[in-house]
Nucleic acid binder design. Structure first.
Lengths: 293, 293
DNA sequence: CACAGTTCTTACGGATTCCATACACTTGTG
DNA sequence: CACAAGTGTATGGAATCCGTAAGAACTGTG
């Protein structure tokens, strides 16, 4: 649905976004992200702004190149959408100067999909491209995509701490009360995934999808790696206290809540008095990006 | 309202000035920056001075080339705005002499946007360009931009110290407990990159992108250089204590883990590692742009 | 208690990853 | 032009990890 043919149907966006967003870290979501929209045609600008707002972004607008540069400097947006054709200062020139002074990602909107524009724009440092006529839906998707990339680049994942374990993705180290543990890649990823979602049960399918990035495969792989991980983090791997198995369902990491928690030393207390086996457990997989076809 | 085409109407200045001053608090920080404005046409000079003053700069003015050189020497401005056409001494010549004696950034104001002028000016060492007729708003923006750049350029990277190693980017030297080490260019860059981001793992891809500036290439290059670097900085290269390898991930520099440690790792220049093929990223940039720079 | 389903445990071959060395190419120098 | 230093690539081998299989142990049910 190219721009200009009215608004409407912003709902399918959700579906689209989900299928596209293979593994979105929640941090990449619109949240507090600010977009600077530089477009001289008022009608287009309005429509796009509406879409961006609906997607949850904050939007600043500029109608010409100079205003754009000023706003970029004063508002420090997280991303700039830039029309190639502008009164006053050319879009390419604006992009070039933006790049000189700051490191904000830029999406170029170019009138015709001529090769010249694409090449020129990319050389100027645009991070992505949209050619007129374009669908605002597509634009929003690209915005999210570019943001996701740039955020990933500039914001490393923060460390996690639980039950005396400190896990730092930046250095890929895990320490238990200061003592470093030697985990392998898979073990680390698995532990990281679980530590970020404590007290939440995950089936083997979910884990092999989230941590391994597979859509199929031998589930016993998970079992074995859980075993190996326990060997390294549990005081008594036979009687796990942290990485517990929820019988018939999967695994769960119990960190924190450690002191006042032990509801009853009596081990007969079944953990899952209310474990529903909903097939559609919402799993926000943020950790693994290993594609295996 | 372009300047320089005629003498008239400097009144709408007020409107412009407002939009200009809005972002006076931004990063360019005119603060105490001093600008030398060299312009023989009094009307233009006055208007531009007003804009610069409103933007928060201190302004010195000169009407001819000789005065310009004298003022430049005596006032030590942070930037010079230089008209190409001057009585007495040509703008290009002034620029050339300025460049001989000091390293101040120069913005050229040239009468016509002819190619000759651009080329000549750039050869003379102008940092940026404005062609008459120009808008004073644009000029202010360029001043800020150039200043920002030059500040960045002339602020040298500070030395780093870790684990008895002192690395000074300015002199490109490394010493270990006072003893100088003979590192090659690549070794130095690699070590510098890692020492600035201690306790942070980088994959070979990230390193070859960040240190080598390649987007592709044989990753074993990194391996070998790490090996060579270890040969020079490790007591026992076979059992590295500083430049550690993180199996299946990459390398990490571990220096200084004693005192103030839990500092958030420098988030500045992360490079994206995962070469995931985002389905929604339209990668149709020419297939063959494999320039290795 | 027997049975079926699930999980644990161990072990092993293959695959991956890294290291060490050697070699070819470029560049600057005398 | 020879030479040396620096750099990128190729290769064999060692170290490590991973996925799978297969049997033992466990759990809940009838």
């Amino acid at each position: 649905m190219p721009l200009g043919s009215g608004s409407g149907a912003t709902h399918s966006q959700q579906t689209y976004a989900e299928s596209v967003t293979t593994n979105s870290a929640s941090s990449a979501e619109p949240g507090n992200r600010r977009i600077l929209l530089v477009e001289d045609e008022q009608t287009i600008a309005d429509v796009v702004r509406d879409y961006l707002l609906k997607a949850g972004f904050q939007v600043d607008m500029a109608g010409d190149g100079f205003t754009a540069l000023e706003l970029a400097a004063s508002r420090q947006p997280d991303l700039v959408i830039l029309d190639r054709m502008l009164p006053g200062l050319d879009g390419v020139e604006v992009c070039r100067r933006l790049r000189q002074s700051m490191s904000v990602p830029v999406i170029m909107v170019t009138a015709l999909g001529t090769e010249d524009d694409r090449i020129l724009g990319l050389e100027m440092g645009a991070d992505d491209y949209v050619t007129k006529p374009f669908s605002p839906r597509e634009l929003v998707l690209r915005v999210k995509s570019v943001l996701r990339r740039s955020i990933k680049e500039f914001t490393p994942e923060p460390p996690v701490e639980a039950a005396g374990f400190e896990l730092d993705p930046a250095s890929r180290t895990v320490t238990h009360r200061g003592v470093p543990l030697a985990l392998t890649v898979r073990e680390f990823d698995l532990l990281a995934f679980l530590m970020r979602r404590p007290h939440q049960v995950f089936s083997r399918e979910e884990l092999i999808k989230a941590v391994w990035g597979w859509d199929f495969g031998d589930l016993s792989t998970v079992t074995v790696h859980v075993r190996r991980l326990r060997e390294k983090i549990e005081a008594n791997p036979t009687k796990p206290e942290l990485l517990k198995t929820v019988w018939g369902v999967g695994y769960r990491f119990d960190g924190k809540r450690s002191e006042a928690d032990n509801v009853r030393p009596d081990s007969s207390v079944r953990v899952d008095s209310d474990v529903r086996v909903d097939s559609d457990v919402p799993v926000d997989m943020g950790e693994g990006d290993h594609g295996r076809q």
